[in-house]
Design a protein around this nucleic acid. Structure first.
Length: 560
RNA sequence: UCUCGAGUCGUCUAAUGGCAGGACAGCGGCCUCUGAAGCCGUACGUGGAGGUUCGACUCCUCCCUCGAGAACCA
């Protein structure tokens, strides 16, 4: 991590931690980030990662990476690998503390035996259906299982035989003996272990019984000496159970579970199930499709780790459900890239301009600064000649009010080159504009002594030197702010049909052909773009990370 | 319906009995060889009703609204 530039704002969790440090409840803070390896990490996980690792960093503690892998049927090493990559990319380091809940299967088993011996857990052979009926409803108490009073000896024997694989899946479970009348459904004798004859990504076929989350989690935290176990709000109702396991096992130096609101972002979905559906049903190209809110998607889109960490700091941490405006994320990446991205010129929708009074065979090398925000980034040369491309949008045959760009008879400055004047509009026989004939003013070369100024400055690329490229313009994935909460339509019916617009005939300045995968640029007046990982020398592909703020577009929209 | 949790500018978030503040978004202006960036300015909020108090976003009561909870998921 970078040196002591801790500007992370405080929040209620940090308040608790500072208090625990002050009162001496803990001498050292220990947190953990506990993903289940059943999907790719998304921006919501990034919030949790920044919270947990950020706290460890700021209070000189430690944060573990722990895979919460207690359900072999859903988990896979593909996810284990991607999660590590994403956490590292975000800039955090778990050092030698990468664990699996499955590392603790033996200890977990031993503690379960202890619970049976203490009479607080029993083996049940009720079917799933019977158990559901015993459970009751939120308004009606449940009823005790007929197995609830099974003797300790018998439960011990059955539990061991469960472990030994003597029974079929579903035949037996281990349950906690708590209170079938509790108003909290999670306390109505919840399951501790179930039989699953599945191969586990980490432990293989060593086990055929697997602990449930509610049991594995508090104990895993305790094994690792976690002091503050941070999780999202939906686990709030599980907290009494979290504490119960620690209680009945008489464990000292207990971790404390604290819940905070998960991140929701406008115009996207955040549930792993929904993201998985988008991937498997091919609504997007993969987990790393740049429209996805996944960490790998954002990375491919051109987001930087700094901008995401910054975003996490800015949104804060609280207990109330919230829906954060994606504009805040976008602001963060613009802010970061504004400082770091070199400015280059690229024409996305080319319109040819012939400068009729410019020498036929001349090429001038125009000097241009790489980033006005950072002079240390230097300058470069770009070729200029008689034939150039400009953006179609920068010309209007019939200009609206306040249009500062090219139209018949008007003058604009070509960035870092000359002022040109539009004299003639050339059309084909269908009446489409194919070319503009302009003249330039040789006295107005950039950096020269001329003080003549015009209202508009536009970007351009030499038609003889520019290289072709494909540019992918991304927009929000969904058409409404909260696609998960529409009364009638499913989220998949609310996808934005224009979320990807591929532009294959773009021209970029020649220098840009050397760019490498992941390189980031500002295409002047257009937005921030990065080289796609699958881009090749033969076919250059750029992804638009985010557009520039466009007050002209806003003005024009308002006037229409 | 029951239990638990949460309600502060449009959005996110501070203020922990003592001036309701910041960020994003918005609006207006300045500047500009990027209609970008930057700079300046501006508007906007404590869910409601009572109560306690010199003083309430904060404490109490009732109400309202929203979220979570009945997987051998996490």
């Amino acid at each position: 991590m970078e040196e002591n530039t801790n500007t992370t704002p405080s929040n209620f969790i940090r308040d608790i931690i500072e208090d625990d440090l002050k009162t001496g409840k803990h001498a050292k803070i220990h947190t953990r980030f506990p993903p289940e390896p059943n999907g790719y990490l998304h921006i919501g996980h990034a919030k949790s990662i920044c919270l947990n690792f950020g706290i460890a960093r700021d209070y000189k503690g430690q944060c573990n990476l722990r895979f919460d892998d207690t359900n072999p049927t859903k988990e896979d090493v593909e996810y284990v690998d991607s999660i590590q990559e994403d956490v590292k990319w975000l800039g955090f380091d778990w050092e030698d503390r990468m664990y699996y809940a499955s590392d603790y299967f033996q200890k977990l088993y031993d503690f379960a035996v202890k619970m049976i011996k203490e009479g607080v857990a029993y083996v049940d052979n009720s079917t799933a259906e019977e158990m559901k009926n015993q459970k009751g409803t939120p308004t009606e108490p449940g009823t005790n299982s007929p197995c609830r009073e099974r003797s300790i000896e018998e439960s011990l024997d059955l539990f061991e035989r469960m472990k030994n694989g003597e029974f079929e899946e579903g035949a037996y479970t281990l349950r906690a003996k708590i209170d079938m009348a509790s108003p909290n459904m999670h306390m109505r004798d919840p399951l501790i272990y179930r039989i699953k004859k599945a191969t586990h990504h980490n432990t293989g076929d060593e086990w055929c019984i697997y602990p449930m989350y509610d049991y594995a989690h508090p104990l895993s935290d305790w094994f690792e000496g976690i002091t503050h176990s941070l999780c999202t709000l939906e686990f709030e109702i599980h907290r009494p159970l979290y504490d119960w396991f620690l209680d009945v096992l008489h464990l000292e130096n207990r971790p404390r579970q604290i819940e905070f609101a998960r991140l929701n972002l406008t115009y996207t979905v955040m549930s792993k199930r929904k993201l998985l559906e988008l991937v498997t049903e091919k609504y997007v190209s993969g987990w790393d499709d740049p429209r996805m809110p996944t960490i790998c998607g954002l990375r491919r889109r051109g987001y930087t780790p700094e901008s995401i960490r910054n975003f996490a700091d800015k949104i804060g941490v609280a207990k109330r459900d919230a829906m954060t405006d994606v504009a805040l994320l976008e602001h963060g990446i613009r802010e970061d890239l504004n400082k770091r991205a070199p400015r280059v010129m690229a024409v996305l929708n080319p319109l040819k301009v012939v400068i009729t009074n410019y020498p036929d065979d001349l090429t001038e090398e125009m000097e241009t600064i790489n980033n006005p925000e950072d002079p240390s980034m230097g300058s470069r040369k770009i070729p200029f000649c008689k034939e150039i491309y400009i953006e179609q949008d920068d010309f209007r045959e019939d200009p609206p009010k306040k249009f500062h760009r090219l139209y018949p008879g008007s003058e604009v400055r070509l960035k870092s080159a000359y002022i040109i004047k539009c004299n003639e509009v050339i059309k084909n026989d269908k009446g489409e504009i194919t070319e503009l004939h302009c003249t330039y003013d040789p006295e107005t070369k950039s950096g020269g002594s001329s003080t003549r100024s015009v209202k508009g400055t536009i970007h351009w690329v030499s038609a003889r030197h520019g290289k072709k490229a494909e540019v992918r313009l991304y927009d929000r994935l969904f058409v409404i702010e909260d696609p998960s909460s529409h009364e009638e339509l499913s989220f998949k019916e609310l996808l934005n049909p224009h979320s990807l617009d591929i532009n294959e005939n773009c021209f970029i300045e020649p220098e840009l052909a050397k760019a490498k995968a992941g390189d980031k640029f500002q295409f002047m007046r257009m937005g921030y773009f990065c080289v796609d990982p699958l881009s090749t020398d033969e076919k250059l592909v750029f992804n638009r990370t985010v557009g520039l703020r466009d007050s002209w577009a806003k003005l024009e929209k308002k006037d229409s």
